[in-house]
Nucleic acid binder design. Sequence first.
DNA 1: CTGTTAGCGCATTCAC
DNA 2: GTGAATGCGCTAACAG
Lengths: 339, 339
Amino acid sequence: MKNITIKDIANKIGVTPSTVSRALAGNVRVSEKTRKLVCLTAKEMGYRHNVMASSLRKGRSGTVGMIVPRVNRTFFSNVISGVEEILNSAGISLVICQSNENLHKEKKAIETLLLNRVDGILISLSVQSSDHSHLGSIIELGIPLIMYDRVSYDYDCVRVVNDNFNGAYLATKHLIKNGYKRIGHFGGSKNLKVYIDRYEGYKYALKEAGIKLNEDYVYFDVITKDAGSEFIIDAFYNKKCDAMFCSGDFSALGAYTTLINKGVDIPREFGIVGFGNEPLSGLLNPGLSSVEQNAKELGNKAAKLLLNKLSDNNFVDDVIVPTCFIARESSNKLINKNN
Amino acid sequence: MKNITIKDIANKIGVTPSTVSRALAGNVRVSEKTRKLVCLTAKEMGYRHNVMASSLRKGRSGTVGMIVPRVNRTFFSNVISGVEEILNSAGISLVICQSNENLHKEKKAIETLLLNRVDGILISLSVQSSDHSHLGSIIELGIPLIMYDRVSYDYDCVRVVNDNFNGAYLATKHLIKNGYKRIGHFGGSKNLKVYIDRYEGYKYALKEAGIKLNEDYVYFDVITKDAGSEFIIDAFYNKKCDAMFCSGDFSALGAYTTLINKGVDIPREFGIVGFGNEPLSGLLNPGLSSVEQNAKELGNKAAKLLLNKLSDNNFVDDVIVPTCFIARESSNKLINKNN
DNA sequence: CTGTTAGCGCATTCAC
DNA sequence: GTGAATGCGCTAACAG
């Protein structure tokens, strides 16, 4: 089956391709009569607009690239969902690349997207990306760049991030209010500002309460379940911490299960809060208190900002997506034993 | 900054664009000397191959479309991850659309992908898609179609599915072996063959063990947590079931938490197995037994099949990705009380 | 309101 | 091994 082109339509109804093009494009100065005729015969002949040709001509591809550290993480898949929702309804295609937390793959992904002449790029940096020079090529080409969640401040672009500081602040404050005295901090890679911010929020809550920061209680590493399991031993048995703010739910869970398996009473002997509010956290017993990041909303916001940039609205500011603390049992020291 | 084209390169080194095009394409008959010169100056001048122009000329876009019911589901995000991995290393871009389990959105997504002239499509049908006629246009255009997980048998295409039958069979058999007598079934929408297959696997395990199917124990609905919570009341208190095979982990969890909150002893009074092996299932206490779907592998396989189809290898058969049963505590009737 | 003209950047066929 | 010529399908500037 031959592909129908605007030329075929033009021939059929005795006008020129230009007219057909204009008619199909909608609101240009074309008589209502020919517009209807064109649309009708286009439908009759089974015409499909050729996006590749149109893109080439217009110099815009109508697609946006999104780089994600890992698509199969609750947070990121929700962000993707939010981005897809907005872009799709704006008629823009979304090309997704995974960096797998790997700087080399991240660079390659950017290269791929640039080759494909995407109209804009959304990126969340990989853990490995302490050097951000590879973002330069995007800027140089004048392609709108939105950074989300894991952002860099080395380049001129729009950033959409969670209020990591406040989330951590609220969580830590909650632990303090609930009577925990020696509250530790388990943070992620210092390459990423999100973890720095959470640490700052933690420190601020302590300071506000007049508690001196004890660096012995502070750990930084990958925030996996295994890492959480490991550090909690030291924190609980050696350092005598009685609570822990964890920068991720999985590391919190590592700590949580390790302590429970050793017969430690959570939350009475030890309080734990996580970050990310994974679906499982509310299903545990005791439930894991955590900070909700509103990932989908973050995705929505990022996509909307990009749309703004694409329509030449250059006055878009960075956005901070609020976080909120979800109190469950794991951080409630005074909880009733029978609960 | 002006975009460099092959013409610019040609002018610079005194050859024609054709030669440059051939040299850049690699292994055509071009003298080694000019090839090197071309590549070198291309790099020097900051040339980037224009995929849009190339696609238009070649009639292929170099991108593949993937339709996913929901990207933020553990299973699907893992499939995406698997697909992305393969396609990306083959130099193919992946465009992702969400159907949100909605037939209309699914149709629109297909339309979008076709307009974008994707070279192939991967699709998992939405729950609403009992009518599959919208797939016809893909077939008619001769675009390779791979269906994964939620597939239709109305069209000629390649299918990649889990061994849902065997997963359900193993899970049910396990319940029987562990001494449960009145094992119920909680299935998902009958629109989807995956749930039919799981039901068949369940029935086969009963039959094999000489247990007569009791339709009173069989429920079909959406497999959400809430639905699970609701049905378990009837199953446990009215029908006196002592175990339940759930076609999804979340519905299993609904049942699980509802019973535990009512003081029912899982697994001694009631056994539960789920399907999907969500990350949380292994973290619960007691752990939720479940069927692992190997989603990422399924994604890998689907992508590889598509690559085969794209390289004109038409002799590709449907693939069944194995599932395996993960036994945890929730289905172990004879478990030691102190465990 | 419509036609004419001229490419977007590249890949391919046909010469030589 | 290279050049010349052509057009993939569409849009946009300019005329009228």
